[in-house]
Structures are given as C-alpha cells and as structure tokens.
Computed example of a mutant assay.
Amino acid sequence: MRELTPIEVLIVEDDLRVAEINRRFLEKADGFQLVGIAATGEEAKDWLEVLQPQLVLLDVYLPDMKGIELVWHIRQHYKHVDIIMVTAAGEIEIVQEALRGGVFDYLVKPILFDRFTRSLKNYRNHLQTLTNHRHLDQHQVDLLLRYTGQAPVPSLSVVLPKGIDPMTLEKVVQIVRDHSGGGLTAEQVGARMGASRTTARRYLEYLVSINRLKADLSYGTVGRPERKYFAV
C-alpha cells in the first residue's frame, strides 16, 4: 500500500478566530499540511492559482462573494481540488448546491474537533483508496460514495432516534475521548456534560450501538460492577 504525501490544504475563512481554530485542528490531523489562509474569495482565487492545493476548507459567508461561487470557480478551473465546507450556513438550498458542486463534506459551525478530524480521516482514506487501486468493484465504489457523503441516506427525520441531539452526541464522544483514564461511567459523563446519569446513559448506549464507543463492566473492590465507556 502506497503512502500518501502530505495533503496540502488551503483555509478560506474571513473570521480570524475561526481560521485559527481550523488551523489548530488541522495541525493535529496526521497527513495534512496547511499551505495558506485566505480571508476573501479573491484572495482564495490567487492562492488557488499559485498553490493549487489538494483540499480547500471553505466558508460560505465571505466579504466579497458567497463560498458557493468559489465552489463553482474551483470546479471550472481546478477539477483536481477537493472541498470541505466549514460554515455556519445550514440553509437547505446552500447545502444542496454545495452537494451539487461535489463537495466532499459539509461541516456546520460550531465545529467539534471529533467531527472535523473524522472528516479529514475519511478524506485521507478516500484518497488512499484511489491511489492504491486502478479498478474498483461495487463494494469499493460504495465505500467511496459513503466517504464523500454522496451515498443514499435516510430521511433527516430518522437519522437519529428521538431524544438524541447531534450536537450533544458529538459532545459525549469528545468527553469520553478526552478522558485518559480507564473509561467513564454514565454518571461521570453526565457530570461533565451537565446532564443526568439517565440522559448520559441514553447517549452512551446509542453510541455503543453504532460503534462510536465501546463499553465494558468494571469490577471494583466493593459493590456491584459498573458499566464503563471507552473510545473506539
């Protein structure tokens, strides 16, 4: 299996604080190299012409143009450049047009570190598959479509069970992953997220069911065994 060279990334974001957060997140992801930060659409066009990065992290709301305009500019002039939207724009029309423009992923602010890095990991896996194969079977094509978010998905109303909020879900994952000890109980997670043990357990068990977390029984010296949750 051939290893990929570092993936060059251009950040297009006019909010300096958000651009800095994206930069720090990117630095913690293996296999990626920041080559520039553009604060406007025109500046992004200049960076694209000079650097021709492999990946662009693109905001929708720029001072001089909509990020969607830049998506179509990239598609017209730089077909080899991939795009991940990182934006506060959640309007369905904008999401639809971004998908039509072939964006690899669409991240809605505020971005959680876990979701950000998962997107980059999927993108790296996507490129690795393309690099290591000259011909793909149906299963491999399905995997590529899943990576890019283009595979068929259920209605948004059934993506998550009732009572499961996506933002809280990612927060629970991050709480467990940030813990360096031997797993956390539902009560401990609840205390960290500011919720009851019952609420925390509901999220934790759902995450176990979709293989985002794992669980095991911990036998202490006194009392009943406790169910603890670990990062996968």
Rank of each mutant, 00 (worst) to 15 (best):
T185W: 09
A186W: 08
S196I: 03
G220R: 03
E205K: 11
V189M: 15
R197K: 05
S196E: 08
A195E: 00
V172H: 10
R224T: 09
R201H: 14
V232I: 09
E226V: 05
E226L: 15
D165I: 08
L213D: 09
R192N: 06
R227W: 13
L169G: 00
R202E: 13
K171E: 13
M193Y: 10
A215L: 01
E170R: 07
T185E: 01
E187L: 15
R201C: 04
K214Q: 12
R227C: 12
Y206F: 15
G181I: 03
K214A: 14
I175M: 12
G181M: 02
E205G: 08
R224M: 03
Q188G: 08
G223L: 01
A191P: 03
D216F: 14
T199M: 03
T168C: 12
K214F: 12
L204V: 01
P166I: 00
E205L: 11
L213V: 06
G183E: 01
E226A: 13
M193P: 08
T168E: 07
M167G: 01
E170F: 15
H179K: 05
N211S: 06
V172A: 04
R201D: 12
E205Q: 13
I164L: 04
I175A: 06
S180R: 06
L169M: 11
G220T: 03
R227F: 00
M167Q: 15
P166V: 08
S218C: 11
R197S: 07
V208R: 12
F230D: 02
Q174P: 09
Y229G: 12
K214N: 09
V222H: 06
V222A: 04
R192C: 00
T199A: 04
E170V: 07
V232M: 13
T168V: 15
D165T: 01
E226H: 05
A186V: 10
S180T: 14
G182N: 15
A191H: 13
E226W: 13
P225R: 03
E226G: 00
E187I: 04
T185F: 09
Y219W: 15
V173H: 00
V173A: 11
L207N: 07
L207S: 05
L207A: 10
R177E: 12
R224V: 12
K228M: 01
Y229L: 11
R212M: 13
V222F: 06
R197C: 14
Y229P: 09
A195Y: 02
T185H: 09
G183C: 09
V172T: 13
S218R: 15
Q174C: 06
E226Q: 15
F230I: 03
Y229N: 12
K214R: 08
E205T: 05
V189L: 04
G181V: 07
G182K: 11
V176L: 04
Y219M: 11
T199D: 06
R227D: 02
Q188M: 14
K214Y: 02
T168G: 05
G181N: 02
N211P: 04
V232L: 14
G220Y: 02
V173W: 01
T168I: 12
M193V: 01
